[in-house]
Amino acid sequence: MLLRKFDGYWGGWRQAKHFTAVNMLIIPEASTQRLMLEKGELDMAMKFPTEALPAFQKNPDVQVARGQGLRVLYLRLQNAAPPTSDGRVRQAINYAFDGASFRKATEGTYDPPTGPAPALFLGDWSPKFPYTYDPAKAKMLLQGAGYGEGRKAKLIADLLIATPDQRKAAEILQAGLAATGAAELEIRENEWPVMLKYNSEWQKTRDPATAHHLFGLFTPPRVPDAYAYLWYTYHSKAIGAFARNVMNYANPKVDDLLDRAAASTRSAEKIAFYRQATQIIVDDAADLFVGTQTKVYALRKHIKGFYVHPLWFPTVTVYPLHRE
């Protein structure tokens, strides 16, 4: 795709340094993209696997730009079928997840989890988040729920195919659960339309024998409000009606708080309701909150004027870019 300068742009073209055309190339193979950036054929790489980051950081001709991202990665937990319908099992899953290892494996491109919505949308506030990696505590909780060496909790994770970060999170959880000796996780990968169909079909039967217990999902800010993260995902009215509360979380208190937040026109009051709802969701261990994705771009050193925009998709404001 080729973007060309529009002479009538209201901002004007005062600087001679403005780019007059920007060519966007889809390069699916990560190593090709990396080679082309390192050789200077590309000025910027917008989407690349995190494994390429150390090489970019060491390269004196390349700069890495990081910024606040607003996309939250969850491994959503099935609230309507055992074993994850038991709150103790959901908490155990949260304690069995080694978040530090995940952040290391993804080269620091995720911020530690602060619950279902980024702090930015809650007035720069995070809930009390008790879940740190603690396999002993996870084991204790699983034992409390009736699972142990003789009767392991058998879990199935349904992930979107070719999504390495989801895969890494699930594998790290798999190891954490194995360390408890009381649970085991099977990881499956599927195409997106297949996952959606499975979810809508499962809602009709809710058969525990065919349940998937974890569902990999990114949630972006479709509207600039905590509503985007909370209502569709955690309100009981969203079960079945939309495809986001697919794991059937339902808590009347949360419903009430989310409805009141949605109805409120006062910002402070709205945020207060969202905060209360968020704390309940975290305490319920409704999901495994993996982290908030940091936005990372790699640019040639001579490209100036770039800033990271926190929007969902990789976004580049071309106008201020120039070469030095």
Partner: peptide, 17 residues
């Protein structure tokens, strides 16, 4: 035969039924 929902995939998760 493959159970899939391309219409839902195209419209996104926040589309109503």
């Amino acid at each position: 035969v493959i159970p899939s929902d391309p219409a839902r995939a195209a419209l996104g998760q926040d589309a109503s039924q």
